[in-house]
């Protein structure tokens, strides 16, 4: 159908439109720039008290420890934006780490890519199981992944028994993966940054990625819009599991000694990082880059508390307090934003 455009309407619309355009642009920048600002301030304060914090050794330490963490934050982001949660990633990481790294001892001369594929396969299977139960079984993901958290950990304990993988069985080529780098920046950190960038780009610029946000924003509307909600959610869980599987192999390369407790409780740290990074816990908004920066911030906080000589007993409590502060700040910003949007729209509406 064709309508004649009233000439005045288009021009009358211009100023209002560009005004609110600027506002939304600012919004999107704020969501990530807020967390980056917190990070910068935190680093500056810590460095002014203890200059050793900015030594290349310490920076490298933080980056290496952030890689696996940030990778899992990407996995969790995909699930959380669709208004779900994956609590099983810590357990999947633990199982994958033991089984894949264990291969070096059991199969002499096994190639490193095969070990990675094993970890990927384990994660894929766990993620697909989660995805099936959530999308076809229609069981809330909180319940499903809480159950698989224990089931996968239980399998891990059965497989490991009293054993552990020890560093001596791992080839140098494997254990060097997290350490090799250029001028203090590990290659791995660069690769992971690229992977996270790709993941964020996928979520932002592909139909299936946008549909995850749509599902998280309003599941009923998503169904009305003809989105195959079940398939998208299934995919998100499968990819999340697969990433957790690969993260397990990297974890093994980094820590080298793996028993049945590897990664216990890690899922909550990851969720904390995701939320600190500006991903809404009830879905619909937030980016993988933000989540990764959230991971970097939490890792920096724990490292800074160490460097500042704060007794380890205090670290968890202080980390929790800072988490609360960061989220409160973020919440306050978004509430103010919403109010300003309301004011704007009522201005346009009349």
């Amino acid at each position: 159908m064709r309508a004649t455009v009233p000439a005045a309407a288009g021009t009358a619309g211009e100023p209002a439109a560009s005004g609110s355009r600027r506002l939304t642009d600012r919004v999107f920048r704020i969501r990530e720039s807020g967390i980056i600002a917190v990070l910068v301030v935190f680093v500056a304060v810590t460095a002014s008290i203890q200059p050793r914090f900015l030594s290349s050794g310490n920076i490298q330490f933080i980056l290496v420890n952030t890689t696996v963490f940030a990778l899992l934050a990407l996995a969790e982001t995909m699930v959380v934006v669709s208004r779900n949660v994956d609590l099983s990633i810590g357990s999947v990481l633990g199982l994958s780490a033991y089984v894949s790294a264990g291969l070096f001892g059991q199969v002499p001369g096994i190639s490193i890519p095969v070990v990675f594929l094993t970890g990927l396969g384990i994660g894929l299977a766990c993620g697909a199981a989660n995805g099936l139960m959530v999308s076809i079984g229609r069981v809330p993901s909180l319940v499903v992944t809480l159950a698989t958290l224990y089931i996968v950990r239980g399998i891990d304990i059965l497989v490991v028994g009293g054993n552990e993988v020890i560093a001596q069985t791992l080839p140098d080529g494997f254990t060097q993966i997290p350490r090799a780098g250029l001028g203090g920046v590990p290659y791995l950190a660069i690769v992971i940054a690229a992977v996270i960038g790709a993941g964020a780009y996928y979520l932002r610029s592909f139909r299936s990625g946008r549909e995850l946000y749509a599902i998280g924003s309003n599941p009923d509307a998503a169904r009305l819009a003809g989105i195959s909600v079940g398939r998208r959610v299934f995919t998100a869980f499968t990819v999340s599991g697969a990433i957790a599987g690969v993260a397990g192999v990297l974890w093994a390369a980094q820590y080298q000694t793996i028993d049945s407790t590897a990664g216990t409780g890690y899922e909550l740290q990851v969720i904390a990082a995701v939320v600190v990074g500006g991903v809404a816990i009830f879905g619909g908004s937030g980016s993988a880059v933000g989540a990764a920066v959230g991971a970097l911030l939490l890792q920096t906080i724990s490292s800074a508390l160490n460097v500042l000589g704060i007794p380890p007993l205090w670290i968890q409590a202080i980390a929790g307090l800072l988490l609360l502060l960061a989220i409160t700040l973020d919440r306050a910003i978004s509430v103010r934003l919403l109010t300003s949007l309301r004011v704007r729209s009522s201005g346009v509406g009349t």
Partner: peptide, 16 residues
């Protein structure tokens, strides 16, 4: 929106 003759910014999020 031009055809409908209403000024609504397409780049704005719908909340609010």
């Amino acid at each position: 929106f031009g055809r409908l003759g209403v000024p609504l910014d397409p780049g704005r999020i719908c909340r609010g």
